[in-house]
């Protein structure tokens, strides 16, 4: 478990704060890191100096990638908890005292055993990787279709058939009809001059063409903006009531 030359030292204190650049790629998890620390410190796994190891652990994980941090922080919390438990007075019944480190030791041993299997697998995998099997040649999914046997007259007949069945494309002439907002404003003004209150349906008849409806709407909004009239609708989809604005009349 040696640190690669490219990875920054976990002890580096010159890492600018606010950046998380150090990746603990050399460790595959918190237990791996812990095991490495125990080896480096050359301490007995059954009698871990928990305060020292916890301190080292925290030092190493100070800068972490965010997505890895949780797993390591959980272990750090665990270590600190064990450290705290170790400080508690053991009481009289030393017999019943259970070492708070016992669970951790069990996990470390289990992890260590797994690492041995990893070594075996790694070796076996490397051995297999160094041999090639016959290359896999993917089969073409479907057999190639037989070449077309076709005479010129057959081809021309087919073209003719297709041309016959194809209808001439339908062409529509689209005439642009401009929206007549000033005209609509004139109409509304004339109506409001006759009476103070008008309904939308008075101005726009049911069979009005879309451009008339649009012109009237835009004209109405323009007039409302200018303060020439008030537009009210008591509830959604109800008839719109238009009243000439007394303020503008006064002016």
């Amino acid at each position: 478990m040696t640190e690669t030359a490219t990875s920054p030292s976990p002890y580096a204190s010159d890492v600018p704060s606010g950046s998380f650049v150090v990746e603990l790629t050399e460790f595959s998890g918190p237990l791996d890191l812990l095991l490495t620390l125990i080896r480096e410190e050359q301490v007995d796994i059954y009698d871990i100096p928990i305060a020292r190891v916890a301190e080292q652990f925290l030092l190493r994980i100070r800068t972490l990638q965010l997505n890895e941090a949780a797993d390591y922080l959980e272990m750090a919390a665990r270590l600190l908890r064990i450290k705290a438990l170790m400080l508690l007075p053991r009481g009289d019944g030393a017999e019943s005292w259970e070492d708070p480190r016992a669970e951790l030791v069990r996990r470390l041993l289990e992890y260590q055993q797994m690492r041995e299997v990893v070594d075996v697998l790694e070796k076996a995998g490397e051995e297999r990787r160094s041999r090639f099997a016959r290359a896999y040649l993917p089969q073409s999914a479907a057999p190639a279709e037989a070449p077309l046997a076709l005479s010129l007259s057959e081809l021309l007949a087919a073209v003719d058939r297709i041309l016959r069945t194809t209808k001439a494309p339908a062409v529509h002439d689209v005439i642009a009809r401009s929206v007549d907002v000033p005209g609509a404003i004139t109409t509304i003004r004339a109506l409001l001059a006759l009476r103070a209150r008008a309904m939308w349906t008075d101005i726009v008849t049911k069979d009005a063409e879309p451009w008339v409806v649009l012109s009237t709407l835009l004209g109405l909004l323009e007039m409302a903006k200018l303060g020439e009239c008030k537009v009210q609708q008591p509830r959604p989809f109800a008839n719109v009531e238009i009243t000439s604005d007394p303020a503008s009349e006064a002016a």
């Binding site: 125990i38 059954y46 470390l108 260590q112 055993q113 041995e116 299997v117 075996v120 076996a124 995998g125």
Partner: peptide, 21 residues
Amino acid sequence: FALRHLEELPRSDELAVALRT
């Protein structure tokens, strides 16, 4: 891993736990 079968892996009790004292 070019294994004949799973039993080719070392048995758990064969694993010499390096830290075991």
